[in-house]
Design a protein around this nucleic acid. Structure first.
Lengths: 200, 200
DNA sequence: GTAGAAAGTAAGTAAGTACTTACACATGGG
DNA sequence: CCCATGTGTAAGTACTTACTTACTTTCTAC
């Protein structure tokens, strides 16, 4: 028909990244085809290759894009700086973590599983930095006498571990369909176990 | 050259399953080709289709095979029935969990991510049943007054969460290459946090 | 109004995919 | 001995994949 809508290069690029993000998150890199991305974005497949020279490059643009989104990290820093008591701080973090959208966790897992060698930066921005930040807070609380002497990185991992694993089981393995407990009870249970476990 | 080695159907089938297991675990279902499986097993590709009518069927044979391997579950039940004190019991479980081979966890994650709808049984055998068993033990310890009143399933998830997430970070995300802490220290830290958190 | 760049498209290509076919060879029982 | 059955293979099939090509349409600047 030839009657196509012209859209600016930047907008088009962003649109492709967004569509690709959702598909890569649901099906992984290998499980997603460029044709599928084109159909989903309702554009001609060739347009993808005008903006990204390979599927691989598009994939890294998606990762790069997700690395820019640091909302979670900011919320973490914000919660830690709020000055509330430990219970309030950690419940805020836990609540935020468990209420998340599954897109980023899925992308992270896929990239770790199928693109091992290249996803270091992605991992560092979205995983490692998290428990470095929380580790710093724990270190301070230890020196203040609020927590007992524990490796701060391991303690942070223990905390995130409870949350991340629960999230995985509920969202990825579909456990929420046969065991759905309220968010607030879950948060309270995890934070209580961890905080009691950290007290001197 | 036509000089081929004849092998019994059962052995061949098992050989194919073993090779496929390792490839599916490393690259996922979509990322693994039947040609690659054949090359890896050093057999003609057609042999695969004599034993399994589709790649999908081979995949489910792999899952089925992994479901039969219940060594982990037995060790869990064994540790819980050993009659030692809580610290000994949970350290034994933790040690066993963290020293595992990554094949099964990787298969589980891939199946959850890319074959969501079909991997329920796999999940139930290797994930859900684990914290049902541990949940029962926790329930008993609560009634004995050894642990405080906590949802046993959530408490079990909290415990496994610390272990599984740590394992994922170390093995899948490759954190062990830049942060490698000793197994025994890790085990002790996690078990201490959780046990202290569960005490009345 | 028109040149030229940018954005769009239909219709490819070569290589790969899961899977099949037709046929060769081995083995054990009658 | 030879035939039925089971195990092996080379060389396919039809389809899909990532990626290209040659070409058209639209927008902007002068």
């Amino acid at each position: 028909m030839g009657h196509h809508v012209r859209i600016s290069s930047e907008d088009r690029r962003q649109q492709i990244i967004e569509v690709a993000t959702s598909l890569f998150a649901r099906q992984g890199f290998e499980g997603t085809t460029t044709r599928q991305i084109a159909e989903s974005a309702e554009i001609n497949e060739a347009i993808i290759f005008r903006h990204f020279s390979t599927k691989e490059e598009l994939y890294w643009a998606v990762i790069e894009d997700q690395c820019r989104i640091r909302a979670g990290r900011e919320k973490l820093e914000q919660a830690l700086a709020s000055g509330g008591d430990d219970e309030h701080v950690f419940m805020t973090i836990a609540r935020e973590f468990l209420a998340r959208d599954a897109t980023l966790p899925r992308l992270l897992l896929f990239s770790a599983l199928e693109r091992h060698e290249l996803s270091q930066r992605f991992f560092k921005v979205h995983v490692a930095s998290y428990y470095e930040i929380l580790g710093d807070y724990i270190r301070r609380r230890i020196s203040e006498g609020g927590f007992r002497e524990v490796d701060p990185i391991l303690a942070a991992r223990a905390f995130f571990g409870m949350l991340v694993y629960h999230f995985q089981v509920q969202e990825l393995f579909g456990a929420k369909h046969f065991y759905n407990i309220g968010l607030e009870d879950t948060v309270k249970t995890f934070v209580n176990i961890w905080l009691k476990g950290m007290r001197p």
